[in-house]
């Protein structure tokens, strides 16, 4: 049963002609994009251009917004994720998400990480213990938190909280991880740790990260997409985008002349 679900989803994302409306507001305009597996892809663009909106299409978080209408084709592997038969909860299990502001649940570190596995029926203490440890190790937080597993997660520092949230996402073994400005609320040291983590994680997972920080995009991403007013202006290898952008608007943005 579990095996089968994992087969359903691949790891690369292919989007064809995506349009999205919030009520009357046309927030995404004909976006097409192929996001490769086991790589870091960054979305950049000025505030309000639709980066988060696009990102949230991949785990169908926009379904929670009333009045939101989506057209176009979103495929992960071979699966059409907006198909009527798609199990949204299974989708979200495969496509983890880390938010801009760390949002640990008001419970212990342990329970935070165990929340996802428990959702999918894992109850055995030994099994959970193992998941908690491996997730914390994978998010480079185990050494710091192994003695505080039963402290409240809301008492951690911002950086620790964010890495806990990453660990929490990892605990259900996602194939893809979406990160929406994961470091914008953090100090440089915590930011560095999370960037290193991305490098590590992309060995097994596909990572899509929204960032306002150009340096961050060049440091961690393999591919970069530049958004403007709901459109994908340019998309390609990060090196190329930043060294020789094809579109004038991209150039103006990355050289800091608007936005």
């Amino acid at each position: 049963m579990k095996e089968k679900k994992e087969e359903i989803f691949g790891q690369d994302i292919r989007v064809k002609n995506a349009n999205l409306w919030y009520g009357d507001f046309h927030a995404l305009k004909g976006v097409s994009m192929e996001i490769p597996a086991r790589a870091v892809t960054a979305f950049i663009g000025p505030s309000g251009c639709g980066k988060s909106t696009f990102l949230k299409c991949f785990n169908r978080m926009n379904d929670l917004v009333s009045g939101c209408k989506i057209t176009g084709e979103f495929r992960i592997g071979e699966t059409d994720i907006y198909d009527k038969t798609t199990d949204i909860n299974a989708l979200r299990k495969s496509v983890g998400m880390v938010f801009q502001k760390p949002n640990p649940f008001p419970m212990s570190v342990y329970d935070n990480i165990a929340y996802g596995p428990r959702t999918f029926g894992i109850r055995k203490r030994a099994e959970l213990d193992e998941i908690v440890e491996s997730s914390l190790r994978a998010s480079a937080t185990w050494e710091e938190l192994k003695d505080r597993l039963h402290d409240s997660a809301t008492g951690l520092s911002g950086g620790q909280q964010q890495r806990l949230c990453i660990a929490r996402a990892l605990a259900v073994q996602p194939k893809i991880i979406l990160m929406d400005e994961p470091t914008s609320a953090l100090d440089p040291i915590s930011t560095g740790k999370i960037e290193e983590l991305c490098e590590e994680l992309k060995k097994d997972t596909t990572i899509v990260v929204v960032t306002h920080n150009m340096q961050q995009a060049t440091r961690i991403s393999d591919k970069t997409g530049f958004f403007l007013l709901g459109e994908l202006v340019e998309y390609g290898d990060t090196e190329e985008i930043f060294s020789s952008p094809k579109d004038e608007r991209t150039e103006r943005y990355i050289t800091g002349r608007f936005g």
Binding site: N89, R92, M97, F99, K101, Y115, T119, A169
Partner: peptide, 18 residues
């Protein structure tokens, strides 16, 4: 209750009831 908590839970694949 902050919406970010609800989002966090949904994003992990939890259903509404949970």
């Amino acid at each position: 209750v902050s919406d970010s908590l609800r989002e966090g839970s949904y994003a992990l694949g939890a259903g509404k009831l949970r």
